[in-house]
Amino acid sequence: MADTLSTPRITSSYLDSFTSRTIRLIGKVTQLRGEQATIDSDGNVTAHLNRDAHLTVGNAVEIVGKVNQDLSVKVLKATDLGRDVDFAAISAVVDATHRYKEIFYAE
């Protein structure tokens, strides 16, 4: 039940283990090119945006999306987080998510 609904938090380095899964990724928007954006989450990630997504270059964004075979992310939901986001804390959460996955997600 909860298995299918969880959206594990990842960074760019985890993309290849999560293809065709829905994930959560936080990063800084570095480039916006129409329907596509580049997000820095411990490395660059290409995001294919939907119509509702309003991204701002330089701001942090949280993306809920599906990982494509080419390791780009199809955005389902994007939440702007502003500029005051501690990326060290974000990577600590991602690290904890995968190290102690028993409380975060099911395989």
């Binding site: 005051d84 986001v85 804390a89 959460v93 904890a96 102690y100 409380i103």
Partner: peptide, 18 residues
């Protein structure tokens, strides 16, 4: 209002779990 609170609670939950 400060997103870092989300990171904090998730890390707190991990620490208490452990």
């Amino acid at each position: 209002t400060d997103f870092n609170e989300v990171s904090m609670v998730l890390l707190e939950a991990t620490a208490v779990h452990l």
